[in-house]
Nucleic acid binder design. Structure first.
Lengths: 183, 183
DNA sequence: TCACAATTTGAGTATACGCTCCATTTTGGA
DNA sequence: TCCAAAATGGAGCGTATACTCAAATTGTGA
């Protein structure tokens, strides 16, 4: 949408404001008014750059997803992947919770976002299964996928628990899951 | 609140309508108008019996929680508990998702509901740890708690995946987790 | 039967939300 | 320098929400 420098800068401000708000007050608190207020922009300017409020939220969440799995990482170990997951969750817990919320409720437009999340899951599953195959030499490909699926499920569940109890020892248990998986 | 028979009956109708709606259209679709419409009641009558919309939602979710863990079940095995969990999730997937949504977002009043869910989790954890101790004779109490924690996390994660992909083989993988846990 | 409390009604309030419209100003290529 | 396109400000629209209130009706115990 934006063509001129001014437009590009406001666009960036809006995206940043949205990311900050999602991380601080969650999806519910990230209203159009709040976004525009923090970005020092009026509603009219916002809609000159974005088709809807949903659009900017989708963009922020998509960027967060992309950031957590930057490359296929061919030779990553299970431990590496678990550490990356820990980083993602602990780096911005509220944004991680928003991700879960969107996935669960289909809060956004049902269509594109959910498909994106599902695709992201499949990609991650493949990478995790590769790492499991590498870490457990004798394992069958099918069993590796199953173990990867269980590992990911456990990590998601632990993240859920963390959202519920902020003092929860998420990292410690996540590492225990990794041990179990490669044993 | 209700003193007369008429009041008790409408109260029951409202609770039932709310439960149905949560199961069919989720938290977002369960508006006051929808509840009153399905219960054939006007808004004024609703507020004569309930302090808020939140109150009836909390009540329905609390009842659902109570139903899934009716008794301490002293001699339940890990397999029994996992089967009960499968039953809960597959019996009413949308209500299970609502439960997750409330837990994650703290959508309701922050206070009572989240504490209730956390307490419910602790109770369940204790029961699961007991079953693990029974199924894995030599295990230390501390390790049993850790394994139970991981088992529960994996089950929650699998439930999350099921919410994302309705065709997901939730039951099959849940049983695999049980095998892993007692091995 | 009767008095009074419980219940029900349904119009109405307050508020928040996402979003639109359009006059005005700014931008940057020709 | 000119001028069309882009960007901006800001009032305001439409809608949906949870919730309130006074009046009418109904149920129950005495």
């Amino acid at each position: 949408m934006a063509r001129y420098q001014a437009g590009l800068r406001t666009e960036a401000r809006i995206v940043e404001a949205t990311r900050d708000l999602l991380g601080e007050v969650g999806l519910e608190g990230t209203t159009l008014k709040a976004i525009c207020g923090r970005a020092s922009v009026q509603a009219g300017s916002f809609y000159n750059l974005f088709a809807s409020k949903e659009a900017v939220v989708v963009r922020v969440v998509s960027e967060a997803i992309a950031a957590v799995a930057p490359e296929p990482a061919e030779d990553a170990t299970v431990e590496d992947l678990v550490e990356a997951y820990i980083q993602f969750i602990q780096g911005d817990p509220t944004l991680a919770a928003v991700y879960t919320e969107i996935a669960i409720t289909g809060a956004l437009n049902d269509g594109p976002m959910r498909e994106r999340i599902a695709r992201h899951h499949r990609q991650r599953l493949e990478i995790f299964a590769g790492a499991v195959r590498q870490s457990v030499p004798g394992i069958s490909p099918k069993n590796a996928v199953t173990r990867a699926e269980l590992l990911l499920a456990a990590l998601h569940g632990l993240a859920f628990h963390l959202a519920l109890e902020p003092d929860f020892d998420f990292a410690g248990l996540a590492r225990r899951v990794a041990e179990f998986t490669v044993s």
